[in-house]
Design a protein around this nucleic acid. Structure first.
Length: 291
DNA sequence: CCCACGACCTGTGGGC
DNA sequence: TGCCCACAGGTCGTGG
């Protein structure tokens, strides 16, 4: 479920159970996800306190006392569920109360973390493209996973001028450039398609031609689609997005994604949504109003 | 450096 | 009804 708005939704749902809480018990059910768990993973987490939970690109980052940060990526199919007992008023509205006895024992439940909230956090990932790492907090920005990442699209530094500069001289189609995490951090297939639609820009357009008013439209579209998706609790396709098990709602607001053949939702436009493949991934757009 | 593509893994939905 | 294959929110390594 995992682009920036979904990760941000998970972060907000997880924060009450993690921030300023102590990790009391960690269980891993296998040796690896996309990469092996770090050596002595459970021991290094046990009895640590989470100072803050933040996000960079599509990574969730739990900064621990003791100088390390727990890095979590959800890959394609990763999910996080929070089970908290009798904490409704303090923690928000968790639907699982008390936790079902089987919680954390599903076929693809790979990691279970308990905290003194008290809460049980279950990480599920059928495809195992996700990862969990421990990295020294002070060295995070120099770590290979993070040092080449592009700008955060919701930061004040993300402007049309910045966008124009990072697309300068690039020959790849704009769809591919926006998917590249070194250009902008956090966009994925859904929100790139949706942002290009909002900006009326063809996904096939050469990146370097996006300047001036087009850059302004695209920067604004990226920001607006991400904010709208976060407000809606992210998008739920086959799975649920939120830590309380409820579905995100933004999939009901897709203009183009997974809507091949549907009429273009833009007023006055007579176009029909088309599906093409770019660098191996599906792209959806309206050939009539996206240029 | 820049870009395209296949690989990684499991589940599911649609077509026959 | 059942089978098979194409495809799925992301990265990463390789090769041109």
């Amino acid at each position: 479920m995992p682009e920036l708005p979904e990760i941000e939704t998970v972060r907000m749902g997880l924060a009450p159970a993690l921030e300023r809480r102590r990790l009391t018990r960690i269980v891993t059910r296998r040796g690896d996800l996309r990469v092996p768990f770090p050596p002595r993973f459970a021991e290094r987490l046990t009895d640590r306190e989470v100072k803050r939970l933040w996000r960079r690109a599509k990574y969730l980052l739990a900064e621990l006392d003791g100088g390390e940060t727990l890095v979590i990526h959800l890959g394609m199919s990763g999910r996080v569920a929070v089970y908290a007992e009798n904490l409704e008023r303090r923690l928000g509205h968790y639907v699982y109360e008390p936790p079902p006895s089987g919680a954390g024992h599903g076929k693809h439940d790979h990691v279970v973390i308990e905290t003194d909230a008290p809460a049980r956090i279950v990480f599920t990932d059928p495809r195992r493209f996700g990862l969990m790492l421990l990295i020294e907090s002070a060295a995070l920005h120099r770590h290979p996973l993070f040092d080449g990442l592009g700008i955060e699209p919701l930061s004040p530094q993300f402007t049309a001028a910045h966008l124009e500069r990072i697309l300068e001289g690039r020959r790849a189609p704009i769809k591919a450039a926006l998917l590249d995490q070194r250009t902008i951090a956090g966009l994925g297939n859904i929100y790139v398609c949706e942002a290009l639609f909002r900006a009326r820009i063809s996904p096939r357009r050469q990146s370097s031609t996006i300047a001036g008013s087009r850059a302004r439209a695209l920067a604004a579209a990226i920001r607006s689609v991400l904010l709208a998706a976060i407000k809606a609790g992210g998008s739920s396709l086959r799975d649920y997005a939120k830590t309380d098990g409820a579905l995100g709602e933004f999939q009901h607001h897709f203009a183009v994604y997974d809507r091949e053949g549907a009429p273009c939702p833009r007023a006055q436009c007579k176009g029909k949504i088309k599906r093409i493949v770019q660098s191996g991934r599906a792209t959806f757009y309206c050939p009539a109003c996206q240029r």
